[in-house]
Amino acid sequence: MKVFLKKNIKPRIKNGHPWIYDNEIEKIEGNVENGSIVNVFNHEKYFIGKGYLNTNSKIRVRLLTRKNESINKDFIKKRILAAIKRRNTSEKTFRVVFSEADNLPGLIVDKFESYIVIDITTLGMEKLKPYILESLIEIFNPLGIYEKSESSSRIKEGLEKISEWVYGRGPELIPFQINDIKFLADTKGQKTGAFLDQRYNAMILGNFSKNKICLDCFSYTGNFAVHMLRAGAKNVILIDYSKRALEIADEIMKLNKFENYELINANAFDFLKNLDKSSKMFDVISVDPPSFAKSASNKLSALKGYKEINLRAMRLLKDGGILATSSCTQVVSEQEFISTIIAATNDSGKIARTLYRGGQPFDHPIVLNIFETNYLKFFLLEIEKIRY
């Protein structure tokens, strides 16, 4: 089972990127079943590496290794152990495996204290699932492993969506703590149930929230809001379109014994637009929307969305107020995101002073050779009126 690449292809693959597209392949030798491991060679028949193949995907092959080694349980376990060593953490809750960034494309593993949630997005990784589960059980001895593989990419890969306990059992809402705050990961919610990538950014925002009137837009289950309240915010309003997310946010607030908050089930764009017509103003506003674009073809609309939501937030801030703004849209670069913020300040007659510039935490590593691993942009901005 061999895959031969074309002669005139970009040096991307040679320089470390694991994806091989359909138009980069010259020929495939052998009767290869989708999801199977193949050996990849360049046009001169020089060995490039091993990966799994899927002819239903534009990304025909995802490389797992550049060595001529067996892809078995021992291989998977070594990869997971390497990812754990790379993180060098004593935290009980963290992202264990971050797909391509940890040389395991198609696999996400989040650990929430005694429980683990996995997300498998590709057919090739699905076929390796028995090895993944065995390895995680041996390494962590968890009380339960929940598979939350619900990405739309699974349909393209020829897979059904899965949301169930695949080892042991556990609660629908998995309890865990970060930054000494109690949280709940929702097995029926988004992604793996909780967003761990913003935990340090939220902690930094808390430092600017004491005695402040705050607004958390796209709050989901309240990561930013809870950190602001923990730091002494006077009041926080949480806005999210998901009623269930707000119900769980309410549970999290009660776990932490917070009372000075309000939950509003609404579209954040519409809510801010309506607030703009009132006289209500805020000291701190967090804007952390979901990804606005999954592909480069939708980048323009994503940039328009970022400009609009940041402009509306700026109009609702008191002079000298704090805007915490985020983008998790991978196809939008940091510079493009900054440009949309500048455009919003120009339209609102304000300036934005950077107080903190954040991104992904250590357990969401960025491989510089694989730009797709770099997605999260975060800024804490002091918004000031321009006085003439």
Rank of each mutant, 00 (worst) to 15 (best):
T329G: 09
T329W: 01
T329Y: 01
T329N: 01
T329S: 07
Q330V: 15
Q330H: 05
V332W: 00
V332E: 00
S333P: 05
E334Q: 08
E334K: 10
E334P: 00
E334V: 12
E336H: 12
E336K: 02
I338R: 07
I338C: 08
T340H: 01
T340M: 04
T340V: 07
I342V: 05
A343C: 11
A343Q: 06
A343T: 02
A343V: 15
A344Q: 15
T345Q: 03
N346H: 07
D347K: 11
K350G: 12
K350W: 12
K350T: 13
I351Q: 12
I351A: 05
A352E: 10
A352D: 12
R353L: 08
R353I: 15
T354N: 02
T354E: 05
T354P: 11
L355N: 04
L355E: 10
G358I: 14
G358M: 15
G358S: 11
G359Y: 02
G359I: 04
Q360S: 08
Q360G: 02
Q360Y: 08
P361V: 11
P361Y: 09
P361D: 08
F362R: 02
F362S: 07
F362G: 15
D363I: 15
D363Q: 15
H364M: 11
H364D: 10
P365I: 12
P365Q: 12
P365V: 13
I366A: 05
V367A: 06
V367C: 06
V367G: 05
L368T: 06
L368G: 12
I370K: 01
I370R: 01
T373C: 08
T373A: 01
T373S: 11
N374I: 03
N374H: 10
Y375T: 04
Y375I: 09
Y375V: 09
Y375Q: 08
L376F: 12
L376H: 09
K377T: 01
K377D: 09
K377N: 12
K377A: 04
F378W: 15
F378G: 00
F378E: 00
F379Y: 08
F379H: 09
F379G: 00
F379L: 10
L380W: 04
L381M: 04
L381A: 10
